[in-house]
Amino acid sequence: MGIIDFIFYVSAALVLGSATVVVTSRNPVRSALALVLTFLASASIWMLAYAEFLALILILVYVGAVMTLFLFVIMMLDIDVVTTRQRFVRYAPLVIAMGVILTGLLLLALKPDYFVFAHLQSAVDYGLSYSNTAELGKILYTEYVLAFEVAAVLLLVAIIAAVSLAHRKPRDCKTQQPVAQMMVDPKQRIRLVKPERK
């Protein structure tokens, strides 16, 4: 067992452990931070599978952007820990049922023998000159270009929807007009008066 295996087992243990903390932690901020750790550990596992682009994008997008906004919202909310704990117990049967259904669907879709060890292949190392990013780009813009474009349009629609939901018209809120501020003539604001001598 080399260093690679060692890193794999450490990160795998981290993924499982921190994912458990996400669900069980009483403090929502701690849950969010545990989720960040889960993402970081899974990124290092992907890195071991030579998927450096995906691993770094996972950190960049999920850790750097999505989870920061999550933390932002959670920190501003005043969450009552006792009631969330009661809800945790109340919703437990529902959550377990959902877990069973999801696992069942996965097993139906993929068939149990998909998970047999003999079918799994280890990642292939193509050497240093091989660029994971370039290969991903090639396949994304040729074979999967339609799916890619559809996803892009969907994201655009989501952005427009978010902007139109959050946007308030200027008459509803007081905004500053930077252009008007810059165009101000000092003469309009200050009147210099020479006081008469007595």
Partner: peptide, 25 residues
């Protein structure tokens, strides 16, 4: 000397905001 060097540096610098958020909270 990694292939995705720029992405790596950018990803790492995007994590730095957590320290600030956690410190403040």
């Amino acid at each position: 000397n990694i292939n995705a060097g720029v992405l790596y540096v950018f990803a790492m610098s995007s994590i730095a905001v957590y320290g600030i958020l956690i410190a403040g909270w």
